[in-house]
């Protein structure tokens, strides 16, 4: 149990996906202009990460390892993720149109989000158990959403601030990310 808590905190805060591991930066800078879309994106990514972790763990331990085909992992994982994203998108579209309008549009973008393939590869290299993998995915997703949300809040305010012309847009967003990243180093002493 303490192990799972450590995995969760490690993934969410200490080795934060965006600020420390540099995973999922494209949506980070693309979507983090508005708080609403940031939350939707974060939830969508967390959902896909968790389901993918479950699916790839089962495939890895019941198909790839028994048949000695671990070298195929990248191809299999990316196909699984692409398929899952499609299924989740269809499912949400059919069951809850409101939810679909809120974050369904972000789902297709997630296939090529490195956070999702990243978590499946991290689970494999760290040798996490099934529960460990799922907790790691949840932790990673929560950390991702948290930082996305913080960043969007700051950027909404930054729009009104008097930034130098050449720093407007992405450059100042990078500098903000640097300050957040520095702050997150402090979590290193937690465990």
């Amino acid at each position: 149990m303490t192990n799972l808590v450590a995995i969760f905190l490690g993934m969410a805060l200490i080795n934060n996906f965006i600020l420390v591991r540099f995973l999922g930066l494209c949506p980070f800078f693309g979507v983090s202009k508005k708080t609403n879309s940031a939350v939707s994106m974060g939830v969508a990514v967390t959902l896909v990460m968790t389901i993918s972790s479950l699916a790839t763990w089962l495939i890895r331990h019941y198909i790839l390892i028994p048949y000695d085909a671990e070298y195929m992992d990248i191809v299999i994982y990316i196909l699984v993720i692409a398929t899952l994203v499609q299924i989740v998108e269809l499912f949400i579209k059919k069951t809850n149109l409101e939810l679909y309008n809120a974050f369904g549009i972000y789902l297709p973008l997630i296939t090529t989000n490195c956070a999702v393939l990243g978590i499946t590869l991290i689970n494999a290299t760290q040798g996490y158990s099934l529960s460990g993998s799922i907790v790691a995915a949840l932790g990673g997703g929560v950390g991702f959403t948290l930082v996305l949300l913080m960043m969007s809040g700051i950027r909404e305010k930054l729009e009104l601030a008097d930034t130098p012309k050449s720093m407007k847009g992405l450059p100042i967003a990078f500098i903000t990310a640097m300050l957040l990243s520095l702050a997150f180093i402090g979590f290193g002493g937690m465990i």
Binding site: M167, S181, L182
Partner: peptide, 16 residues
């Protein structure tokens, strides 16, 4: 060399 440095350098280079 820390992750923060990567954000700092790319931000400054882009502004430059």
């Amino acid at each position: 060399i820390l992750p923060a440095g990567a954000f700092l350098v790319i931000g400054l280079l882009m502004a430059l």
